[in-house]
Design a protein around this nucleic acid. Structure first.
Lengths: 340, 340
DNA sequence: CATTTCCTAGAAAACGTTTACATTTGCATC
DNA sequence: GATGCAAATGTAAACGTTTTCTAGGAAATG
């Protein structure tokens, strides 16, 4: 009986507790119909042997893995890291484990990772945005794995969405700047290729401007990756090419922070000569000087609510699908009425 | 043959490819000794059925899960998120999945999470720091699961460490400030309870000052959580109580950023009246004004190297254990020679 | 006291793979 | 032409649980 080696198994516990494996299994799974004294023997034996159940065997037999997968663009961007943090925290309260994968904004890579997740037997998948390979969704549906979109309110046919309306958020930024009297705009968007959120924000911004009589084509839009340097470079292009805007909307606080840094270096007053609005409300929004006016993305809430959806029973879920969260405008110091 | 339902199984593939399950298994696992034409039939059948192997069954039979676990304090702190990002990226190249857990700096919670990871059958565990419950390590060792410490160079008896020497880093900060001529110091440390890294930095800092003749007890040390607000509050205490220091070392860039904000608000010149050194070299170090002098933590490298260790064969591993990375001092604008 | 009911616990059959071992086949060798 | 060998494939027994079904008593009922 060399239990030392691989570790004790269920039968070892059964033997020590002087009962059948079935009974041990019942105790472990909280099955109520087992005598108290027997239950006690089992619990004691379990502890004595340091028994840890074999999850694979358990999953194989019961067809329940208690595993959830998440595929996000990157963990380097706080906005995603925070969502995952909240998601994991909530899931682990219920002993559900989270496998995380980063796709680097590449939907083909995302497909491969989804495949691996399916193979692992995840019961749900958290995805970011609504742009995915049809094959990815088809695979999940075929395997009866439900998935949740985040950072968007555009819900899939069959599935859930916990997020916000990026287009509306873009409109909000435009509305705010218009109300400050601005009439010459620019935008630094995230890379919109395969990124519905970045594209949505841009479209909303331009739509609202158009509705107020601006000519869409005359609003310069440059795209950059979510890095300080790109923000700097993009701002430079905006300020040096064509007529200089007095108000710039950035698709991320990082881009905005870079833009502010450029202005400092170039001697352009913020918000005196140009107003800047960011997006995300990261911690850095309080660190730029002047402090950054921005739109708050409820990353933590999304993670928590996505977890709640996943943990809910099928009947509860019906109410939880399609949850649209509000985006708040946080006014700080980088915006001001246009100078006459 | 209702394959539609649960999805095709290995036997279904075998039937369609007109061979035995064993052969299908061999093809799937890249076993070389299978005829090319048969292999081709199998591959075709696999694709046609959209077959995805059952990971649980596979893991149960082969005793290999290709699963790795990581338990970190939080994903909200960029320094950890970045490490995990790199770790995951490297692991997924080899089709190894990463389960992540956050412990919120609580080593009891860490134990529970380690337990769950063991149950899931992870083959390795990545831990942060060297302070863990003995029970946690005992469990891992008993189950023959190897673990890797990160953010520290203090390696466990049986196990690996990829990180840096926190004590030495603290000494570096002290040395640098001493060389600038400072003689009145203060420190804003992270919470040192159950946190060997925070404690190590503090000790190193104080040790080096002591070696230069300072009286250890006369150096005020306040602790704060890694949040802007705490940095602000701690700096206030440091500047208002006792004799005012001319040089402050902070256990994190976040704390340093808060400290700088306090100085702005209080009208204290940085670095004119007080020099500030941070720790981590986060993106925010470039966003404070003045820009923050700090020590760079190689988060991405740690993640990558930890992954390399995990993926290495047992024989290769011997060389990879105990990897100490260098900490670089990044001089920016928050430090200056002491004013006479 | 016989019969039913209820509850607990055991026996044994799954779950979908991998793999040790056995078998077949084709070839080369003597 | 028999024999041996290697390579390719098949057979069947695991892997460690959960769960269905059945059995054994004890308690309740008539």
């Amino acid at each position: 009986m060399d239990i030392e080696d691989g570790g004790a198994k269920l039968v070892d516990v059964a033997r020590l507790a002087n009962c059948s494996p079935a009974t041990v299994s019942r105790v472990l799974n909280g099955n109520p119909k087992v005598n108290e004294v027997v239950r006690d023997r089992v619990v004691r034996a379990t502890r004595e042997l340091g028994y840890v159940p074999n999850g694979s065997a358990r999953a194989l037999r019961s067809t329940r893995t208690r595993l959830v997968g998440a595929i996000i663009p990157t963990l380097d961007h706080t906005i995603y890291a925070t969502m995952v943090d909240a998601l994991q925290a909530r899931l682990s309260e219920k002993d559900v484990s989270l496998i995380i994968n980063t796709s680097g904004y590449d939907i083909n890579l995302e497909y491969e990772q989804a495949r691996l997740l399916v193979e692992r037997g995840v019961e749900s998948v958290v995805l970011v945005g609504s742009t995915h390979l049809p094959a990815t969704l088809a695979m999940l549906e075929q395997k009866r794995i439900d998935y949740v979109y985040t950072y968007t309110s555009r819900a899939p046919e069959s599935g859930a969405a916990v997020g916000f309306d990026n287009e509306k958020a873009g409109r909000t930024a435009a509305r705010y700047l218009l109300d400050l009297g601005h009439s010459r705009f620019g935008m630094i968007a995230g890379i919109t290729q395969d990124n519905d959120r970045a594209a949505g924000r841009r479209d909303g911004f331009l739509n609202e401007l158009e509705r107020s009589g601006m000519e869409r084509a005359k609003v310069p839009v440059v795209e950059g990756a979510y890095r300080l340097d790109d923000g700097r470079r993009c701002m430079q292009r905006l300020m040096e090419e064509g007529t200089r805007p007095t108000a710039v909307f950035c698709g991320s606080d990082i881009l905005a922070a870079g833009a502010i840094k450029y202005c400092h270096a170039a001697g352009i007053a913020v918000p005196g000569e140009v107003s800047i609005v960011g997006f995300d409300n990261l911690e850095i929004a309080e660190l730029t000087s002047p402090e950054l006016t921005t739109l708050e993305v409820p990353a933590r809430d999304m993670g928590r609510i996505a977890a709640d959806y996943i943990l809910a029973s099928p009947s509860q879920r019906l109410h939880l699908r399609r949850r649209e969260l509000a985006i708040r405008l946080i006014v700080r110091e980088t915006t001001a009425p246009v100078r006459r």
